[in-house]
């Protein structure tokens, strides 16, 4: 079934996931995952941000509108924020945004949040794998995706 949704038809469909990674923890965690050669699916498109608290909920919605099949926002663990409380503040926004998107019918698994520290290369790989699996099982995003009208 999923294969049919693949634009190329032959290989397994790979979702596109926009990942907003905080510079201090999760981005470094992703780096470590790479250096450590932990395998994870090539599904994410990383956008480095100074802090998860700097991720305006708008960015997430906008990513979905631009055709992301999923969005992952990852920051430092609570208490570890480089800016002291950025991730705590972000958490409230994300909790409400996640609820709102679900409320209007966006599949909850499309938007995910995680805390990944600079030392958690393996966790980063696991998170990406988990998020990718969940999004893959949902199939390509259809809702909220803006379609072109030109030729």
């Amino acid at each position: 079934m999923r294969e049919e949704l693949s634009p190329r038809g032959t290989e397994a469909w790979q979702p596109k996931i926009v990942a907003f990674l905080c510079h201090w923890c999760s981005y470094a965690g992703a780096d470590l995952a790479g250096i450590s050669r932990f395998q994870y699916p090539p599904s994410i498109r990383v956008i480095r941000v100074p802090c998860s608290g700097a991720v305006n909920p708008f960015y997430i919605v906008k990513a979905l509108q631009c055709g992301a099949d999923g969005v992952l926002v990852s920051g430092c663990h609570p208490g570890d924020c480089h800016y002291l409380a950025g991730n705590y503040l972000a958490r409230r926004k994300f909790a409400l945004l996640k609820g709102l998107l679900e409320h209007v019918g966006i599949e909850p698994d499309r938007v995910q949040f995680s805390w990944v520290s600079a030392a958690e290369g393996q966790k980063f790989a696991d998170v990406v794998k988990m998020v990718t699996d969940r999004v893959r099982s949902l199939g390509p995003a259809e809702k909220l995706v803006k379609r072109g009208r030109g030729r």
Binding site: P7, G67, K146, R147, G148, R149, G150
Partner: peptide
């Protein structure tokens, strides 16, 4: 209203 995925420099093509 540029089509999504299309950009000035080309960029990634739409699905």
């Amino acid at each position: 209203e540029p089509d999504p995925g299309a950009s000035r420099s080309g960029g990634e093509s739409p699905k």
